[in-house]
Nucleic acid binder design. Sequence first.
DNA 1: TAGATTGTTAATCGATTAACAATC
DNA 2: TAGATTGTTAATCGATTAACAATC
Lengths: 224, 224
Amino acid sequence: MTARTPDSARDIPEATVARLPVYLRALTSFAEEGTTTCSSEELAVSAGVNSAKLRKDLSYLGSYGTRGVGYDVEYLRYQIAREIGVTHDWPVVIVGIGNLGHALANYSGFRSRGFRVVALLDADPTRKDEVVAGLDVRSFEDIESIVAEHAVSIGVIATPAIAAQAVADRMVANGITSILNFAPTVLSVPDGVGVRKVDLSIELQILAYHEQRKSIAPASEDAS
Amino acid sequence: MTARTPDSARDIPEATVARLPVYLRALTSFAEEGTTTCSSEELAVSAGVNSAKLRKDLSYLGSYGTRGVGYDVEYLRYQIAREIGVTHDWPVVIVGIGNLGHALANYSGFRSRGFRVVALLDADPTRKDEVVAGLDVRSFEDIESIVAEHAVSIGVIATPAIAAQAVADRMVANGITSILNFAPTVLSVPDGVGVRKVDLSIELQILAYHEQRKSIAPASEDAS
DNA sequence: TAGATTGTTAATCGATTAACAATC
DNA sequence: TAGATTGTTAATCGATTAACAATC
């Protein structure tokens, strides 16, 4: 009981989970360049973290390196992909096909990184019959049959803020258990449903805060 | 020297800084609804955090509430806006006017939350003379004059990954000191330049990780 | 064997939370 | 005065980091 869990299903800290995709991407770059082996230092530089943190993170997955040698790029890449769960594609629906929904539907990075957009939904009936990124824009009312047909568990909300909660409720009612929310609003969902938020203005405001402080700050680090 | 810094320029933890924009948004909602006063509990619910964390966060800014009563919505809203630095608009340039750049250029939330898009730049000469969101798409070569003319310190990168580092270098060379990066790549910038990254695939992969574990996890919390 | 690099330990740092004295 | 709610304290929790023993 107190021995380390031997195989999978260990408990990985949230901060580590958030970095695994970054490592995965760096390893994919290495593989594309033909690099077959790398050290924790090289991988760390490529991922923009320090190597102690990288090794600590990887240690939660298991022992996939070789002391004195480093990591096999392809092997580690696969192990991380497996841990994240992107060795097969996840079907995804996007709701809200405005400017942002358009951009998301056309984003090729989803496909290459473990996701497949299976449907585009919009509540506005005038948008129906539009074709975006090779997919028909369908009525939001079709969500039930689409989620059932494709066994969708991940939904993306790209609607105006005012509509987002209702969309989330409807997603959850139809069995979606993970939501990526681009609408600038706080969603409330039942326990067990995962939500991540991408908020463009908030990111800019965080930059603005630091930007503002640059002009105020005493020049204490100024070595000139 | 050991007394609390009396006025502004206190040291606010990063985690708090990242939440201030969320509080600001919640307060703006309250104001629009005509709510003039709120308690930490009400504001916390609206922002999706617990009230202890909210009060702790606000305590870094100062004492803007009244014990036994709560907060004046408009007053607190102004204090937070001032702390973030969005009592006046920040000029912003967007580089890379593909699908995502289009969406960002048209995003009305920037304008209402402290930012003004002053120029859209793209390296592709065939995109010049296009008008997006009421702005001419201009050559990336114009960045120097535009940054100088509008005193731009914040840049948004919405180019393909392959171009992003060169764009960032050029931004930094021209005096931009804060970058919001949508390209799926790690940027390296000099000390003193702030970078925030928004990575759509990474957000989905984090959701996928948790989604995957739901099917694997032992039903230890299952009370049925 | 000597050199290199991992995986792990332990110390440190920062963030969260509950509880409550202060005070309206 | 009694009730309400803030602002702060202190305990806890989680994340980071440097250092190094293990081991290729």
